[in-house]
Computed example of a mutant assay.
Amino acid sequence: MVLNSGGASPPYLFHFTLKAKTILRMKMLVLQNTENQRGINLTAANLSHEQLQNIVTKIRDNSQKGTLTQSATLIDPLLTKETSSENSLQANEDTPNKFSSDQLTPKKLLISIKESEENEDIKLLQGAKGMYFISELYMTSEYANMLIKLEEGDNPSLMAEIVRRDCKKYPRPTNINLFHKFPFFMNKQEIEDILSDMQKHPDFQDIKSVTSFNGVKYLYSEQHMNERYAAKLADNIEYRLKG
């Protein structure tokens, strides 16, 4: 038998070591995923049935009233005041059903809620500044996303989204007076300021306006119709309203 010179490991030993390391990494990943899932399940288990029911009831009540439920309003009352790693365990022992901010997140709360098939109507939506719960028994995700933009003050994106949707779906241009009404309640100056800002932003260059035969301003998107078609539709809408 000839020993490998120079102290180098035999080829079979290299392959064995590589295989062992691969198996070890796979086991560590499985263990990590298991621990993560256990963390989620513990959060779900530690929330009492009464707590979950109160949360679901609040979400449904708000949706029925046409309002969003910010995730923070549900989670903050369930968090411990002290969330540092060395004190969170002691805090949770002293205050049952209290969690640190990494233990109870909006997504983990949704998992807890969804453990009951009766709560399939509860949805979690992501905004630019926060996360929001709704019940689809009373509010569609499309309408909720519109409210999120309104809540977060993203009026240019909100207006553009509505105009593009109207032009694509119906198709029709959007009467500018729509934004005076519920749930927008914008005054004339606010609308003009938003449109002025949109004209300067590259994301909204497709949003244009036409005026009907009787002087009513409509907005349309060049992504879905041209000026001539938008003007014709605006006139038709006004004729029907007068008719």
Rank of each mutant, 00 (worst) to 15 (best):
D197P: 00
I207W: 01
E93K: 14
S100N: 14
S141D: 14
D166E: 10
G39T: 08
T211E: 15
Y170E: 13
G153M: 09
R25A: 10
L110Q: 05
F185W: 11
A128S: 08
T67C: 08
N214C: 07
D94T: 10
M225S: 06
L109H: 05
Y170V: 14
P156N: 08
R240N: 13
E192D: 03
S141K: 14
G6D: 13
M146L: 15
A128P: 00
T80A: 13
F204T: 02
S63F: 07
Q205W: 01
R240Y: 13
I237D: 14
R228A: 12
R164T: 00
L137C: 07
K232V: 12
L89H: 12
I148Q: 03
K81E: 10
Q70P: 03
K98N: 06
K169F: 07
Q37C: 07
D206L: 13
P183I: 06
E238Q: 09
S135T: 03
D235T: 10
R228F: 05
D166F: 08
L24F: 06
N92P: 07
R38C: 02
M1W: 06
I23A: 13
I75R: 02
S84W: 05
S212E: 05
S112P: 02
M26D: 13
S141Y: 03
D76Q: 12
Q70Y: 09
N187L: 05
E86L: 12
R38I: 00
E192Q: 09
M26I: 08
H49T: 15
M198H: 02
S48D: 08
P183L: 07
V216T: 12
K217N: 15
P96F: 11
S48I: 10
Y220C: 07
S88V: 15
N145I: 03
L233V: 01
S157C: 04
I134C: 06
L195C: 11
N175I: 09
D121F: 09
F179H: 06
V2Q: 11
L137D: 14
T34W: 02
I207A: 07
S101D: 11
R228M: 12
E222C: 12
Q205G: 03
K108M: 10
K149P: 00
K81F: 02
P156Y: 03
M1S: 14
P173R: 02
L3K: 08
I40Q: 05
L74C: 11
I162P: 05
Y12N: 11
P171S: 08
E227V: 04
I75G: 01
T67Y: 11
P77Q: 09
N145L: 07
A45I: 10
I122W: 02
L195P: 01
E117H: 10
N62C: 13
L147F: 00
N177E: 15
L78A: 06
T22K: 12
D206E: 08
P173D: 00
E86F: 08
A128R: 06
N46I: 03
I55R: 02
E117G: 10
S63Q: 01
E93Q: 15
A44Q: 11
V30T: 10
Q223H: 10
I55E: 13
A234F: 05
